[in-house]
Write a protein that binds this DNA or RNA. Structure first.
Lengths: 234, 234
DNA sequence: TGATGACCAAATTAGCACATTGGTCACCAA
DNA sequence: TTGGTGACCAATGTGCTAATTTGGTCATCA
């Protein structure tokens, strides 16, 4: 079978899995049902992924790729998007707009159930996706971080703040319903005040940093794409 | 029966309930068991609280009173403790050091189970306990907030940040294990940078605001104490 | 008159037969 | 020869009933 056909088939299966995941929730979706609706035999699914968990990981990884691509595209179009507060704002919005990523980041137990605790999902959250050390090092190098901060100083407070934005929703009083953009704006404002440099950086800092960051996130996107379509080796 | 004896009995029951709650978790603790260990009849428990939920709410409320008392004492000893970032730092530390409050704020399902979703627990979290509008209004009045902020501007971002600090723990990579004070310091630093005034306020601002805040939190503490020992009326 | 525990309805658990599901692999069609 | 398939299997889950536990009440008692 041609590689293109293989990829197309993988996508068909992933589309089906994603659709059922969002409609029925993780525990209700069986491999049988996915295979049937995708028009392939059950065994064929296992020619693409090692296990059920891996398959659903791939569903998430594909959305992660979309999100990363959107981030990279934004940085290409406007290098100031590389700044931490701009990047995280976009990350937040792009993640929340994609149903599977939103379910993962908001820890939506209704939709994801046991998958939230499964080890296969691990790479989908975690600091690596959120803000790699490589990226933060680039920010520091180009003067886009507060002068007294080293990248590792963000290890605790940055994920903590961002996690708060993904997770508070169910705890807030209902009368407080900001739209996604307003929340993202709050997040950006906070990150700029807490981690941003005192003075506005030069335009050249942005272009230099953006070019480096695009490389970093481009690689990250390719890694996720590879992970999503990985064939099980034995 | 004398009021003092009544209170002592209530405390004995609450001590027992708290002990079992922390050892066995919410769902495993029965009223029968609590009554037996507290040396009273089951009916007696219902002379103090209307329902099982109310009883466990009282367990939390009593710890909330302890916490609020600690906060008030700190403000009395040092009026600069009234500043938002100092107050929330202390709030965070005092809450995390008390097992029942920590379970509530970290949403520890293992310990609290169904109680997390029960309406009786509602008053124990929520913005009221965290930072009432009255308190924020005092801060604004005395110039202890960023000049361009009105109290209601904090409604969304403040609980969001604080929630993050209570809730991230299970998501962080294990190698990152700051002690409680270090986490609290991060929280304080963030809140000062995001919500604090540009210039250091005068000492008189702190004393004035602290005196007002002590009144507010003193009342809140009394309300919780009353709620904890409330007799069910019919 | 305050405290108690037997009592009851409602919810939970235990036990068991039956159905479903993740994953494998012998077989087959191209 | 080989990529695709679905019958197959162990293990997990589901429905069902009987038996137990539990929250809450209240007649009775000290």
């Amino acid at each position: 079978m041609l590689d293109d056909d293989r990829l197309a088939r993988a996508d068909r299966i992933l589309d089906t899995a994603k659709d059922l995941l969002l409609r029925w929730g993780y525990r209700r979706v069986s491999i049988d049902e996915i295979a049937k609706r995708a028009g392939v035999g059950k065994g064929t699914v296992y020619l693409h992924w090692r296990s059920r968990e891996q398959l659903f990981f791939a569903v998430g990884a594909r959305e992660a790729v979309e999100m990363i691509d959107a981030v990279v595209a934004a940085m290409r179009a406007d290098p100031t998007e590389v700044a931490l507060h701009r990047y995280m704002r976009r990350f937040f919005v792009e993640a929340m707009r994609r149903p599977v990523l939103r379910a993962i980041f908001t820890r939506d137990a209704e939709t994801l159930g046991a998958f939230l605790a499964s080890p296969a999902r691990r790479p989908l959250e975690g600091a690596k996706l959120l803000a790699s050390h490589d990226y933060l090092a680039v920010l520091a190098e180009y003067g886009l971080l507060r002068e007294d901060l080293r990248p590792e100083d963000l290890d605790y407070p940055l994920p903590t703040i961002v996690f708060g934005f993904f997770g508070v929703e169910p705890l807030l009083p209902p009368h407080l319903d900001l739209d996604l953009e307003a929340k993202a704006e709050h997040l950006a404002d906070i990150l700029r005040r807490v981690f941003g440099p005192a003075a506005e950086p030069a335009a050249t800092a942005y272009t230099g940093a953006a070019s480096r960051a695009i490389t970093i996130f481009g690689r990250l996107g390719r890694d996720f794409r590879d992970a999503a379509y990985t064939t099980p080796e034995r």
